Computed example of a mutant assay.
Amino acid sequence: MLRSSPAPAPALRSVLAALGSPTAVHEARTPALRAAPGPLSPELPLPVHLLRLSAAPGQPRTRLVGWRFLIRCGDRAVAAAETVPDPDGGWAFSHFFEGPYVTATERALAQAEALPGAYQPRLLSVPELYMLTLWLRPEPGADGAEPDADAADVLVPLAPAPPGIAAHRPYRAADLLPVLSTRLAPPPFFDAEAPAA
């Protein structure tokens, strides 16, 4: 069962204003959004956290960088809207987009609903690996802003996932985060001129 945090009111207002602006929708690089036949509604807001990994041992650090809304037309998501923090401490509309992560997010949320227990859904972006995961915290009372992943959290990589990591498979954070850190480790030093043993 999923228990989502409500999005901050300014984030929702900024997305509603963008959806209500013919200029913002028309200039968006999202053909599906421009071609949508019916009313558009922002749904399933998810806090987006940025994960910075390092090859050094230790806890990976995250920070809240935005809120993402799936934009529905009828019974399916046709695009997404992203909001970012503004200088006044609120939230501002950033952009609309479409692509594989929109449908992958919808699929992962449906999968997560079937998992035993209650989870708070978030998105976790790993830019160094061009990776996005659905981050499920087993603390439904939290507000979505806590910074770091816990070993008991569940991570569901969205498609397309990096090679060797199965998309849409739930992983314990304790199992997946070390794998991601290893991928970012520099290759071992190799001295081509050293004598063979």
Rank of each mutant, 00 (worst) to 15 (best):
Leu115Thr: 07
Pro6Asn: 09
Asp75Ile: 10
Pro163Gly: 10
Arg61Val: 11
Glu128Val: 08
Pro87Lys: 09
Phe189Cys: 14
Ile165Asn: 00
Glu27Ser: 12
Ala166Pro: 01
Asp75His: 13
Val48Gly: 03
Glu106Trp: 11
Ala112Ile: 08
Ala173Asn: 04
Gly99Asp: 02
Ala9Tyr: 09
Val84His: 04
Leu124Arg: 05
Val156Lys: 00
Ala194Ser: 14
Glu139Arg: 15
Gly89Cys: 13
Ala17Gly: 10
Ala174Ile: 12
Leu180Asp: 05
Gly99Glu: 08
Leu115Asp: 00
Leu180Ser: 05
His95Ser: 09
Ala108Glu: 06
Ala32Lys: 12
Asp153Pro: 04
Gly74Val: 11
Trp135Cys: 03
Pro178Leu: 05
Leu176Thr: 04
Val25Thr: 13
Phe69Val: 02
Ser4Met: 12
Gly74Asp: 12
Ala77Phe: 10
Trp67Gly: 02
Arg63Gln: 11
Leu46Ile: 04
Ala24Asn: 10
Ala151Cys: 11
Ala167Tyr: 07
Ala185Asp: 13
Ala118His: 11
Arg61Ala: 11
Pro39Ala: 15
Ala28Gly: 02
Pro100Gln: 13
Thr182Arg: 15
Arg137Tyr: 00
Phe96Thr: 00
Val102Thr: 10
Pro187Phe: 12
Asp148Leu: 02
Ile165Lys: 00
Ala159Ser: 15
Ser14Cys: 08
Pro37Trp: 10
Tyr171Cys: 04
Leu158His: 02
Glu113Tyr: 11
Leu184Ile: 12
Leu184Gln: 09
Pro31His: 12
Val126Glu: 07
Gly66His: 00
Arg76Leu: 12
Asp153Gly: 06
Gly20Tyr: 05
Pro160Gly: 08
Tyr119Val: 03
Leu177Arg: 01
Arg169Glu: 07
Leu33Val: 07
Ala161Gln: 06
Pro87Ala: 14
Pro138Cys: 11
Val179Gln: 11
Tyr171Ile: 01
Ala9Cys: 09
Arg29Ala: 13
Phe93Ala: 01
Ser5Gln: 11
Thr105Trp: 03
Asp75Val: 11
Glu82Met: 08
Ala36Thr: 10
Asp148Ser: 07
Tyr171Val: 01
Pro121Lys: 05
Gly141Val: 01
Arg63Phe: 03
Leu44Gln: 15
Ala114Pro: 09
Ala77Arg: 08
Arg76Val: 14
Arg52Met: 11
Pro138Arg: 14
Arg122Asp: 01
Pro100Cys: 09
Thr103Pro: 10
Thr23Val: 13
Leu40Trp: 09
Gly89Arg: 12
Glu98Val: 00
Asp191Gln: 14
Gly90Lys: 09
Leu132His: 06
Val65Lys: 03
Ala11Trp: 02
Pro127His: 04
Arg72Ala: 12
Leu123Lys: 00
Pro85Val: 05
Arg34Thr: 12
Ala192Leu: 15
Ala35Gln: 14
Leu123Phe: 01
Thr182Gln: 15
Trp91Val: 02
Gly144Pro: 03
Leu40Cys: 08
Ser14Leu: 01
Met131Cys: 15
Pro163Ile: 04
Gly89Phe: 13
Ala18Glu: 01
Pro45Phe: 02
Ser21Gln: 10
Pro127Phe: 05
Pro22Phe: 09
Glu128Gly: 10
Pro147Ala: 13
Tyr130Ile: 06
Ala79Arg: 07
Arg63Ile: 04
Met131Gly: 09
Phe97Pro: 05
Pro45Gly: 10
Thr133Arg: 08
Ala92Glu: 08
Asp153Ala: 01
Glu113Pro: 09
Thr23Asp: 13
Pro121Ser: 11
Gln59Glu: 14
Leu176Phe: 01
Ala28Asp: 01
Gly66Ser: 04
